[in-house]
Write a protein that binds this DNA or RNA. Structure first.
Lengths: 250, 250
DNA sequence: CTCGACCCTGACGTAACGTCAGGCTTTAAC
DNA sequence: GTTAAAGCCTGACGTTACGTCAGGGTCGAG
């Protein structure tokens, strides 16, 4: 013997020692990604050391989430590394944004369902439509960057905090209305307390970012009637009351 | 005439007015998700109003990223809303984590490539392996929760900041070594400045979280030799110098 | 010689459609 | 009335990275 020597592995051995399945090795062979450099007479795949190295390279690149085709191009040198990574990063970023938005919508829907555990399908659909139309309205008033900031802030605050803030609005609005009905003075302590709460809740939303705050005001101004009827948003009278309270403070 | 009245739509019309493709309607018909309640003699699909409503419901649910099968079960009442949403939320969360981790690994790899625009494939693979083994080492020392915190912090800091911090370490370590070589006094002003920088960089990592800091110390202590040789991490002598400088300050 | 472990190829399934291919129907123009 | 364009039909393949059989050879041990 001594023709060539060198250790070789059969599929099962290689699969075991690398943690992948036999099927995966078949698959990579089929794609031409990792081909055994020899076969036995009966057709068994025989992987040499160079093949194993190539397999490890493929697995490392796969770890980064690269598509197998791109991995093949990389290893064959028919594709540059830098641009590929850049494209992949951009792709991942887009996926992140998409998933985060989905997650935010889901949270909104879930927030609207607190209470009755059993919601009818009809109500549920209505709720989803509301969430979607709100989403679209919001998209029209905020830039992509602002939306990304908002999504990040939401992720940071956590679902619970957001649910609490959302639940706090109707309560606060109701109390503002009571104050108005009772003829409270915008400069008085009750109104000042309400205005402070109001600003606090708003701050949870925009986090001190003036751009966000302005966009929110524009959206609210343009859609006041719709928001009031459909989502229990503040009425113009309530907005005026808060504005007057803020003005009185300065 | 006058048999039943009621408006009906052909596929193309419905597709146009809802923004989906004809193929999608075919697909939903095939799945039994939205079936036209009538057909012409020649086989054309005729969608009645109820069908259109069902289609809108499907599209709304699809917006949430639910799989079509789940949508069908929801609309048929054979599946409850709450648990479904919860499962879907959890699924999205898992995806987020996975993508964020991928993205972090990619950033690490990209950070290791700054400079030479053209990196050889071999070097590149070596780099990826490094990143992966670091990743696995880290995973062994931090809890899942801590890892999630770290990922979030990284996302917040932004790629540039992280790259700057990573680039700052070797520089700082080199200067610490110079100070040691020069026989600097750990209590002296030069050493105090270096220690302050050191703590500042560390703080960029753990953000004041003691749990994170402790885990990091444990990892560094256990793997000091490996880190030093492979990634230019601080040597025990350098760590001691910084420790002495900190001790001198108190 | 046989049995169990291991190997082979080939093919279907996955999610949600996109994209032909080949052929019938309806509609609008001429 | 005819004809061409537009619209509709069904059926089937392709996409991603394999999982999961099915049917059938091969190899080593007893």
């Amino acid at each position: 013997m001594g023709t060539q020597g060198g250790q070789v592995w059969k599929v099962g051995q290689l699969a075991n020692s690398t943690g992948v399945t036999v099927r995966t090795l078949h698959h990579y062979d089929h794609l031409g990604l990792v081909r055994p450099s020899a076969r036995t007479l009966s057709g068994y795949r025989l992987y040499a050391e160079s093949d194993v190295e190539r397999l490890y390279a493929v697995l490392a690149l796969r770890q980064l989430g690269l598509p197998l085709e791109a991995i093949g191009e990389l290893l064959d040198g028919s594709s540059a590394i830098g641009p590929l990574l850049e494209r992949h990063s951009a792709c991942l970023d887009r996926q992140m944004v998409a998933i985060r938005n989905l997650r935010a919508q889901l949270s909104s829907v879930a927030a609207g369902m607190r209470g009755g555990q059993e919601v009818s399908v009809t109500d549920f659909l209505e709720l989803i439509r509301k969430v979607i139309t709100v989403d679209e309205t919001v998209k029209a008033y905020f830039t992509d960057e602002q939306l990304a900031d908002l999504a990040e802030r939401r992720a940071q605050l956590g679902e619970d905090t957001i649910a609490r803030v959302q639940a706090a609005w109707p309560d606060l609005i109701a109390r503002v209305q009571s104050a108005i009905d009772a003829g409270a003075d915008p400069a008085g302590p009750q109104a000042q307390g309400l205005a402070a709460e109001w600003i606090g809740l708003l701050d949870q939303f925009h986090g001190g970012d003036d751009g966000l705050r302005d966009s929110l005001y524009r959206m609210q101004a343009d859609n006041a009637a719709k928001f009031e009827v459909q989502y229990g948003g503040p009425s113009p009278a309530q907005m005026d009351f808060i504005k007057a309270a803020n003005a009185a403070r300065h």
